[in-house]
Design a protein around this nucleic acid. Structure first.
Lengths: 337, 337
DNA sequence: CCTAAGATGGCAAGCGGTTGCCAGTCGGGC
DNA sequence: GCCCGACTGGCAACCGCTTGCCATCTTAGG
């Protein structure tokens, strides 16, 4: 057997206590309750701790307090670039608070999601659900265990962080209207997605207010393939513009259109949601509604920490959305009936 | 104060013991040591546990065993799509083992990386470093605390999971050679990246073997911006093809070339590494060397679990690489001297 | 000079499981 | 009929830290 690095068992507060000639409880207080112990004793203890390379055993503390200092995040699909900034923001704020972020991907699968949520909840103080596909009941049952915060989803009695929807959609619909579009398609996301419902509603309302016709088309899934497969059905509607539930769908729409010989943006305008990685790299670059996911991630962590602390859930601010106009939208083709 | 959901303290083995009329130790054994307790007693205990909705308190077990069942993963940049599949694979295998994955992003910053690693190490049984920018010494000092596994990086005495480099590079260089390229550029990644060093070496060797000239150019960073900024210097070398350290650089190269009026692949061929999200969506789609990151993530977890178990570190298999030929490579322009 | 409040530090009981050791029971072999 | 081992299950110590309560000592006020 190879000579491997010895990993001696970590020093405990008892080791420190012995070295400093005090009781373990005194060490604990010296390290955690500022002012509780006399200055010189505390200094002696800290010196001993440093010398021993002491590191607190979080499990022991957790056992006592019931709190782990971990926050869990379960998302529907980490491969979806939408969530990058969200995770970044969440991770950042979590670390700033001295906590650590646990994290799982449900791959758009309810069973996996539920399983991951329950698994993480055992070792975390609370849970954030992003783009959850769980039912309201399932979410409520999770929240019976530990505090739960939903992101871009509203469940009665559960604190939530949501991005504002209206402004971005409003800008997008108006933008299409100004370009002369009157018949548009909304390519739906997953029916279990709360955010999809919101976008659907707001688009319907805005379009109606401007006298535009909207056809709602289901997609196979919020993916590139889903968008690709939807092209024939979109074309069949005769609409001159499509708003897709997300950029992945829009990517697929673009890809499928090219293969089908449909010229974007000349004969079809395409708008996505989220402004994910790559949206500006395509040719033409994608017009899309950006939401500030980073802020959303931060807001979620804040809300969760509030819930864990048992504070009254204050209204969290809703990160804004805005239309980014690029190359996939253009004036409706002059060709008429 | 609003009437909020009661979260009664979770039932313990003592509650079960009382309900089943046995001792707590018997409950513990019934639940964990199959066969140690008589069938009917065990059944009675399990029934009581179910009825109470018992869930083991992992902290308590951890205190005892010193193991948390958490595996930590620190990566240089989670925004980099290369790591998607790696994380997916790692997460999957971790969950299958009944463990949970902790996860942090160092944003290409050594200080953040070290901080995150230390923070996670306190609550995890071991650590995986992906694309680490830490020095060998720093990594060794981490490994003095808990088992550490590096991914795509070799440090003496530290178990590692690495992707195979030779085959993919070999295919790429030969591919360019067959297209008639004789002068090529390698656009370097971060000097602190071990993988960059490997790619550099293998490209140098392969090119030399085929009688090709390679110019090595530094980049500002392994990002789209870095690739974009490098275009003038690449063009200045007079080379007819570039191999970029990763796809992000290649993306930038493509973008910059278009703006500079350099026609890819007619007057410049571009090859990337990793086959990240979006590589096939660009126009032209990117020729790139794919590595099977999912396998790499799985291999890393396996290696880490071995190290934690204290087993002799067996050789882990090295996931293969392969060239994916798409549209950014073409025959060298016939224009000659 | 006596009492009282404040400062300081120790004792010991948990937090929830795990496990070595032991005791009682039971069945079988000689 | 007796001894031994297998089988069951209980006791209690322990993992490392926190904290309520108490004892002691200081210092100040009356």
């Amino acid at each position: 057997m190879t000579e491997r690095t010895r990993r001696p068992s970590a020093p405990t507060i008892y080791d420190i206590a012995e070295k400093a000639g005090v009781a373990a409880s005194t060490v604990s207080r010296a390290l955690n309750k500022p002012g509780r112990i006399s200055t010189e004793t505390e200094a002696r203890i800290r010196a001993a701790a440093d010398e021993l390379g002491y590191r607190l055993n979080p499990m022991a503390r957790s056992l006592q307090s019931g709190l782990t200092g971990n926050l869990a995040l379960v998302m529907s699909d980490m491969t979806n670039p939408v969530y990058f900034d969200l995770v970044r923001g969440a991770e950042r704020v979590t670390a700033d608070a001295g906590c650590t972020l646990l994290f799982a991907d449900s791959q758009e699968n309810v069973d996996i999601e539920l399983d991951a949520a329950q698994r993480l909840l055992r070792v975390a103080d609370g849970l954030m659900l992003v783009g959850s596909r769980l039912s309201d009941e399932q979410i409520l049952s999770l929240s019976a265990l530990k505090p739960v915060v939903t992101v871009n989803r509203l469940v009665d009695g559960i604190p939530a962080a949501t991005a504002e929807v209206e402004v971005g959609v409003h800008q997008a619909v108006r933008h299409l209207h100004e370009l002369g579009h009157r018949d548009i398609v909304y390519l739906e996301g997953p029916s279990a997605s709360w955010m999809n419902g919101r976008r659907h509603e707001v688009i319907a309302a805005d379009a109606a207010a401007l006298g535009m016709t909207v056809t709602f088309l289901d997609s196979d899934g919020p993916t590139i393939e889903g968008g690709h497969a939807a092209v024939p059905r979109v074309v069949a509607t005769g609409a001159t513009a499509v708003i897709a539930f997300n950029d992945l769908l829009a990517f697929g729409l673009l890809q499928g259109s090219r293969e089908a010989g449909v010229d974007v943006p000349v004969s079809l305008s395409v708008v996505g949601f989220d402004d994910i990685f790559g949206a500006n790299l395509l040719t033409p670059p994608l017009t899309t509604v950006r939401s500030h996911m980073r802020n959303l991630g931060e807001a979620a962590v804040l809300a969760l920490r509030n819930a864990i602390a048992g504070e009254d859930e204050r209204e969290t601010e809703r990160p804004a959305t805005e239309l980014i106009v690029r190359g996939t939208t253009g004036p409706v083709a002059p060709a008429g009936p």
